[in-house]
Nucleic acid binder design. Structure first.
Ligand SMILES: [Zn+2]
Ligand SMILES: [Zn+2]
Ligand SMILES: [Zn+2]
Ligand SMILES: [Zn+2]
Lengths: 136, 136
DNA sequence: CACATGAATGTTATGACATTACATCTGATT
DNA sequence: AATCAGATGTAATGTCATAACATTCATGTG
């Protein structure tokens, strides 16, 4: 359930593209997939993505310059989310860990650092893809 | 001590540029700073950065597309390093946390995920810069 | 209704980051 | 000398993201 009543047409189209995709998409890939819906310029995609991120419906994966639909929309108030990204099949697992959050929180408190956005991304191979590689 | 006997001329120049800088630098900024040393093309920088990262002398900050000299060269065999990046003054603090490492390690084991590179980056404001903002 | 206002959109151009492809040079090895 | 691997030089291209400006649309207000 990724529906959201307040979404504009462009935002809905971008979110639907991400939902249909089997992995993260770059902004330009989204653009290509929405040509038939009238999309012509990168900004249409980036503007929609910006709003969708504000709404918590989409996440940006910093380490691969791509975007995914949130796996738990309306469901995590966590400021801190971790991603495991399979570099072979594109599968993305989204999870949070209170202990990690607490430890990083302790570090920033101790250093009087004021965090705004935290990125935790693990790139590698998922169980299925790593298994295939073993057999090869 | 960031010296390294095996470095080539280009690698040394790039590392020195990062050491002299007071914060992370983009590849193109490094290029500009090395014009007088004969640098002409981005690839000279990217190739040097690639090797320096292999040697553990330089880190790439994924969330801001920039590079920093390692704060603890020859000193951390950690696979997992976290960065606190001040978006105002560019200060970067590099640290590692065994508990965070252990918790993320547990997650990947439980999910049979084979990690290759882990990114942990906290963007925000350092104590000094956050303090200034308060007073303003 | 006329009109101001703010949000979203459309469009073009530009800026910023990174790699491909190919030629050349260097030093070590045989 | 011939060979080879690694590093380098250079041009062109590819990929990701934003600036600037005009237009449209919905909404509320006098
Ligand atoms: Zn999410
Ligand atoms: Zn996979
Ligand atoms: Zn380091
Ligand atoms: Zn600062």
């Amino acid at each position: 359930m990724t529906a959201h009543p307040e979404l504009t047409r462009n935002q809905s189209l971008v979110l639907r593209a991400l939902d249909k995709a089997d992995g993260p998409l770059s902004a330009y890939t989204i653009l290509d997939r929405l040509r038939d819906d009238g999309f012509r310029a990168p900004l249409q995609v980036y503007r929609a993505l910006e709003k969708l991120q504000e709404f918590g419906l989409v996440h940006r994966l910093e380490s691969i310059n791509a975007f995914v639909a949130c796996a738990h929309p309306n469901c995590h108030g966590h400021a801190m989310i971790a991603f495991a990204i399979c570099q072979t099949c594109g599968r993305v697992d989204e999870f949070s860990d209170e202990v990690v959050e607490e430890r990083l929180g302790k570090w920033v408190s101790a250093h009087r650092f004021k965090p705004e956005k935290t990125t935790i991304e693990i790139r590698g191979n998922c169980a299925a893809c790593a298994g295939l590689a073993e057999r090869a």
